[in-house]
Amino acid sequence: MSTSLLGHDERLPLYQRLRDEMLAKIAAGEWLPGEAIPTEAELTQQYGVAVGTARKAVDTLVAEGLLLRAQGRGTFVRRPNFDGSLFRFFRQVSSSGQPQIPESRILLCKLEQASAAARTALQLQNKERCIYLERLRLIDGAPLFHERIWLPASRFAALQDVAPSDFPALLYPFYEQQCGQRIASAQETLTVSTADSALASTLGVNIGSPVVVIERTAVGYDRSPLEYRLSCAAADSFRYQVSIS
């Protein structure tokens, strides 16, 4: 027996309605990151659509970066690598010169009113509150990044009960584990600013030194904004490299 797609906008092409149904399953956690989705043949049988329709729906989600095809293994819900920008733009090496993943240290976790920028990015009402995190990322004990993170309290209230020392290095899987919130994608903007006294002290640079700021807004599979983050690093650790052919 096939599953109906009548709950979706019937003005849309059939493949688009199937794509929306598949996205709803990902957003609801029925299909989890890293897990294989049904095959095109199974989708065809389940939803009563042609194989071309199923393939186009899958192709659309692959193009959107939400699914990943693995040759000979199937199609999987993609788990994005959100540290990619750090590895592209910053020298993360140990004292011996070897590539190294930074240590993470949560300095603060509290409930507070969102900043104006965070409120806009997270599409919050004026009186809605946020879970606010401050985090350091270090190489060989030396600060590389200072991060300020805002999360909607309505979705992330469970983090209030977590001690700073109990936060793991990878936050996004922890969000999923503790709060059931899955990050699907993010948009980042890089700008250059200068260090005020507090940031200069944290990063071990002079006041007024140039710093690179990465502004990130991360969204869930339903495209609702879940995290607003500002990451600051000394500009002397910044690099830009691109291959042009």
Rank of each mutant, 00 (worst) to 15 (best):
K56L: 08
T120P: 07
L66K: 13
D166M: 04
A117N: 11
A195G: 02
L170C: 11
R135F: 05
T120M: 10
S4A: 13
L122Y: 06
V62C: 01
L67D: 05
E176C: 11
G72H: 02
A233G: 13
D83E: 14
D236L: 14
Q241R: 11
R78S: 10
A218P: 03
F238Q: 01
E128R: 02
L203V: 02
I183N: 01
E176D: 13
A198K: 04
A114E: 08
G7L: 02
T3P: 03
L230N: 10
V205K: 01
S231I: 06
T39K: 02
I106N: 00
T191N: 11
I207W: 03
F156T: 15
L226T: 06
A169L: 11
F174V: 09
D140N: 09
L171D: 00
D20H: 13
P164M: 08
N81V: 14
Y47Q: 00
E40S: 14
I101Y: 12
Q98K: 15
E227Q: 03
I149V: 07
R223L: 09
R129L: 11
A198N: 08
P33A: 01
L86R: 12
E64F: 04
T44V: 03
Q123N: 13
P173T: 06
I139H: 01
S243V: 13
L170S: 15
Q92V: 10
P164D: 07
A153W: 02
E103Y: 04
T44A: 05
I101H: 12
E40Y: 07
S165P: 00
Q241F: 11
L230P: 05
G204K: 01
A116I: 13
E215Y: 03
